[in-house]
Design a protein around this nucleic acid. Sequence first.
DNA 1: ACGGGAACTGAATCGGAAC
DNA 2: AGTTCCGATTCAGTTCCCG
Lengths: 403, 403
Amino acid sequence: MNSQQANMEELNTLYLGDCLTEMRKIRPNSIDLIYLDPPFFTEKKHSLKNRDGSTTFSFNDIWGDQESYALFLHERLLVMRDLLSDTGSIFVHCDKSANHIVRALLDAVFGAENFQSEIIWHYKRWSNAKKGLLPSHQNIYFFSKTKNFKFRKVFTAYSDATNLDQILQRRTRNKDNKSVYARDANGKIEIGDAKQGVPLNDVWDIPYLNPKAKERVGYPTQKPLLLLDRIIELVTDEDDVVLDPFCGSGTSCVAAKLLKRRYLGIDQSEDAINLAQSRLQAPVKTDSALLTKGRDSFAKQDSVILECLKGLAFNPVNRNQGIDAILIEQFENTPVLVKVQKSDETLAEAATRLLKAASKKGSKRVFLVQTLIDLNDLPPSRDNIDMIVIQTPSVQIQARSLA
Amino acid sequence: MNSQQANMEELNTLYLGDCLTEMRKIRPNSIDLIYLDPPFFTEKKHSLKNRDGSTTFSFNDIWGDQESYALFLHERLLVMRDLLSDTGSIFVHCDKSANHIVRALLDAVFGAENFQSEIIWHYKRWSNAKKGLLPSHQNIYFFSKTKNFKFRKVFTAYSDATNLDQILQRRTRNKDNKSVYARDANGKIEIGDAKQGVPLNDVWDIPYLNPKAKERVGYPTQKPLLLLDRIIELVTDEDDVVLDPFCGSGTSCVAAKLLKRRYLGIDQSEDAINLAQSRLQAPVKTDSALLTKGRDSFAKQDSVILECLKGLAFNPVNRNQGIDAILIEQFENTPVLVKVQKSDETLAEAATRLLKAASKKGSKRVFLVQTLIDLNDLPPSRDNIDMIVIQTPSVQIQARSLA
DNA sequence: ACGGGAACTGAATCGGAAC
DNA sequence: AGTTCCGATTCAGTTCCCG
């Protein structure tokens, strides 16, 4: 860290130190989102070893009384308020140990009128030792600086029990001022505007970090990337600035980086800063893969490529860039190859790979399944290979809709 | 009510009045469970008409400032503490409006060491246009009088992801002292004792009292019986005494009665007491299809459908023979419907069903996804519906191969 | 700029009609 | 007779508008 710096203008950096002093170097009104995961007032010392056992990360969460905890948080929240831009928001993570204290402090600093939501992060856990209910949630308080806060509406699927047919119908009021469905002159039901889905609610069911997850870096109380992902997307745009004053292993910074936001992280522990630093450099790729996978499974859209070929008699081919399946029935005594376009390749790339494989296998007929809309030209065929491009239903529907 | 009574020894009764004064008539240490659903500090007046419109029930939840609300609740909680037996518990219902105040008061009156759980009651509710997240939970604070509180462990069903077969299998140790599944003389895996399930956690997904539910009596903010069932079963035995100092329409008393517990209800409103009284005569409980069958029973979409539509912006439609999805983008201000042919229907049947649905919805364009080879003719279109048939990749490939 | 009341929203269930 | 499907009903909803 360059001590010459008048303020922390340099973004995408991690700073070592107490956030109270470090934050004072940041320009007021310059931050779009503050996420913080401070000590929870558990009255315990938390420590955990990393995978190879070389480093033990720990932090102290023993305070003796509520007042010292409240004081600690309060003076820091006051600084945070100044840093936040007028369209900015703050998300404070805590749990049952002190959520009422945190909420009261936030009310005092940001004003009860700027309270937006109590988000419940719900996860499943495996344990049954204790008398009582199994704790399986944490609380996140969402406050905005002003009522003019930035918010990007997110929509989710309708409930399975919802009668979607009816949702489409336009509403009106009858002569008794009662809300009813609108009908035209012929008594036929009128259809209303397009529906986008159900607005995201305040209870988030996101899996806790699996003990064996690759994502796990050995830092105690590490949060899932998916949680931060969602928070960041909710209240920031690209290039906005995210500050995490208790960044720990740097999950929020990693999420910000993956989502093309700028970030600032602060932590008191040198070990934590080093860990976060290294996470931000190399493993962004693995994090990115995890995020994609997480999002997919979240949306329940995980799919098998071969689903496209369901109903056909074929042998699946694994670990071959050019081929996904070979049909059991041959064409003019040559194997019929099938390739499905992957989400990270253009149709032209897929075609080139398929043609190369076909040439090698001496195939006379191959099928390329297009899974993404793409208007570029295909490479010319070669070796008299008959390449037939077919489209998945969604591509066909999209093509028609665009027309 | 008999004013001669020195205390409220007479159980299974409802009392009209302010609970502060009424509760003083109850013998200390005589109550096993106190459930209360006080005003939430919403700063609104709540009122609602019953079904036939004959009575309007209402209560006032306007306080002006937090202090008067806190004072009101505090003096009543102090009395409640005295009434509770040493093995007793108190459950206080509130929401984001003042959960931090309620929690702080409970900490003060019952002691932070007797805090047991913050229960999150999560439900899906009809939404409305709002900037921010859709509120969909309320908070229930569970405190015990002493650490020696009564608690009956409740187990819930395993999640779908759990391999239930495996859990049921009896385990033993092999000669290397490794844990393995037990097998009988024939090498068949033995089934072990029934497992009890997963211990109940602190986030409860219970359907909101539906607008159409028979259980509804017209009282504002009425709670579902199921919620009270669960609380009562958790911390009381048969014949134990349940007190609800803000009983309103008497849901807690009805639940207690149905579960063979004794009850005492208090409310300020004569209308409420009358209503609760009559409910206790003929209790009605909604048989929630969601709960008895489970959410999963509704959908379980064919994976083929999801695969066909992957990449499209759509709302899935469940339990409708004619439609599987509605695209979010409309066509000439009419909804675009999509149907995927099922394995047990011919293309013609699928088309007929789709056209019928389209006609009703006034759709001008629909997509039918063909998943099976079929050479029969389609029914003629009707009502000027533009029906576009598209084929899955496997159908296209098969069609080509047959040629 | 506010506080308060009127106006309006929209999806999630259940219940019962339709098949 | 058992499913499937459709419509009623609601507002611990919100927003807007006016004084």
